[in-house]
Design a protein around this nucleic acid. Structure first.
Lengths: 111, 111
DNA sequence: CACTATACCTTGAACTTCAAAGTATGTCAA
DNA sequence: TTGACATACTTTGAAGTTCAAGGTATAGTG
């Protein structure tokens, strides 16, 4: 289990949208990409990520398309939508504001 | 309700510990202090904060002491412990690392 | 005496996350 | 063709988190 579940849980959605804003991808690869990016800070489980992807789709932040890989395997690709990009931008801004506040509070402690 | 519940939920504990690292305080005032600090980004409810304070106490990150105010009112003061300061420092570091990652991902999107 | 603000706490519902298991397909080797 | 393994998607049950709402109690005000 992750040592900082609470810290991490915050921006699951934001992180997924960030990854998809770079380029469309399918679920299984998204999970690997994010966990690699996390560099040990956390490891996301399939049971966590897939439901979030489904929710993002229901909310219209991403759309999906089944595609067949060269291997013959079927993959469900996720594409970020315009709405999704908007949500990502807004979320990133909120994140920055929140971070600023946390930092300010921290600095107050040894000033 | 807060417009960014998920973003906020992350570091409830961190925020409380930050406030208490500045100076000891009692629950009701902590809630007002944090919500003021949030500047509209979020508003915490009593039903959220009190249980967290109880948990922090059980974990030894804070200790408590009942005190009587000038008004005659009884208040439960929360003091951060050495363990609590350690947890705050560690949490802040993790937070910084996580923020760095989010930022890096965001920059990748328009680079 | 009613009303408001302070001050603490608990409960039930909704939601989130995880661990675990389930389903299915392609690859590789014996 | 059989077995093992990685890929790929999904669901389920349990544990945890947060909120809205309400409950208790006391001090001050009109």
């Amino acid at each position: 289990m992750s040592p900082n579940k609470e810290l991490i849980g915050a921006s699951t959605r934001l992180l997924i949208l960030s990854v998809l804003a770079r380029e469309a991808n399918y679920g299984y690869a998204i999970i690997r990409a994010i966990n690699q990016e996390g560099e040990g800070l956390f490891v996301w489980q399939e049971g966590t990520v897939y439901p979030i992807l489904h929710k993002l789709e229901k909310e219209g932040l991403v759309r999906t398309q089944w595609q067949e890989a060269d291997t013959g395997r079927k993959r469900k690709y996720y594409y970020i939508t315009a709405t999704g990009r908007g949500a990502l931008a807004a979320g990133t801004e909120d994140w920055a504001g929140f971070h600023k506040m946390i930092t300010a509070l921290g600095e107050g402690n040894h000033g």
